[in-house]
Design a protein around this nucleic acid. Sequence first.
DNA 1: GCCGTAGTGATGCGACTGCATCGGAACGAT
DNA 2: ATCGTTCCGATGCAGTCGCATCACTACGGC
Lengths: 225, 225
Amino acid sequence: MRQRYDATASERGRTGARQRRDTGVPKQVDYEERRRRIADSVCSLIARSGMEAVSLRDVAADAGVSMGAVQRCFRTKDEMLLFALEHISARVGARAHTRLAQSPEPRSAATLLARTLSAIALADPEDRTDAQVWLAFVAHAAVSEPLAAVLCQTYTDLHDLLVWLIGYGKDTGEFRADADPELAARTLLALADGLTAHVLVGHRTPESAHDLLSRYAEGLAAPPR
Amino acid sequence: MRQRYDATASERGRTGARQRRDTGVPKQVDYEERRRRIADSVCSLIARSGMEAVSLRDVAADAGVSMGAVQRCFRTKDEMLLFALEHISARVGARAHTRLAQSPEPRSAATLLARTLSAIALADPEDRTDAQVWLAFVAHAAVSEPLAAVLCQTYTDLHDLLVWLIGYGKDTGEFRADADPELAARTLLALADGLTAHVLVGHRTPESAHDLLSRYAEGLAAPPR
DNA sequence: GCCGTAGTGATGCGACTGCATCGGAACGAT
DNA sequence: ATCGTTCCGATGCAGTCGCATCACTACGGC
């Protein structure tokens, strides 16, 4: 059997087939890196002309590798798409955390929350590509169980992040004590996703989306009186 | 030139080619009705296996007509998809108005709003099919200008309906006087769309979605004290 | 030197795609 | 009866799809 990518485990080390090491590494290729490259090409194609325009040939051409190379990285097209989803899911999650971490100096809970939300909503024009890809996967997940599972996990992670953030605001006394973190997080996550879609089809502007999210975040702030 | 469907105008009456009338009607077929049938099949296929699984042959088979008949109704596949989008857009809009009109007896503004919203959100299990189709079109609209235009119009109509509904609540004094109908309508529309997606991928239950929408509607109600 | 193996690009294959075209059936008019 | 027109289902066609398989190269171990 050939050496091929296994979606669930990338460990090498079949019986006796020792992994080539450090310097020598004659032909061994960095599969992780190649898979990421391919996933990026998949995303790029989806953003350019939609999910149904993704073919193995076009992906290979875009990634600058042969079709055979793509097929060795992923057994089937579905496996490739699944990996691409995990890829951008991770990117969205990472972006949310990054934006949160490097938030500017007046780190009020409301500001932190708003920044995190706009990262999740992918509202900024430079995130449009990711937003298109994300939306395409969400739509496809409605008819593909494995994709839906990955999305659910990502949503849960983001939800937990929001819950923590709101709880933090309550602890500092900046958010009203009677706020329900669970409820607010659910609302905000759905709101962010809906706004993503509205911005993409041109019904809302990115600024409007950002404004709406900020307004809701402000609604959590300040004790009633 | 053959007689064919024109997307923008369905009027007959080319020079001298009189339309067959009333009783005789030998072969003349009801094109409107057939187009609706085909659009239903398109939606059914999308709901079953996604937008990229829609082919002219499968649509024809599902609709119980020949492929030639489909091609005579729609010049191209894109034209067919566009019509299908208009078809379900109209259905969603109609459903919102219907649910609003036949709302049960205690017709408080909050109840009316909540019912309308759950119609828009397509949260109920029996609307799942429509929700899948809707989401698929939204995703596709991100890379297709004509589809985006139709969606924008539909969104605007729904937005106006929500604005009117909230204004109505303010007039009756049931909603707080300082509520901003525009802001609330935008938020609610995005919230409804986001919840649709979350329910479809299984991250939220329909009940949870309905609950969230009701909570927000309640937030509009009752003067601060 | 030779062999085994991992990795490569190229090509083949059957299925399916959207779209164009065709011969003929069903009718009104003459 | 014979047109002319309108509608119909069937088939043809060039292109593309996902996937399998190929012959070949580059290398370490012996």
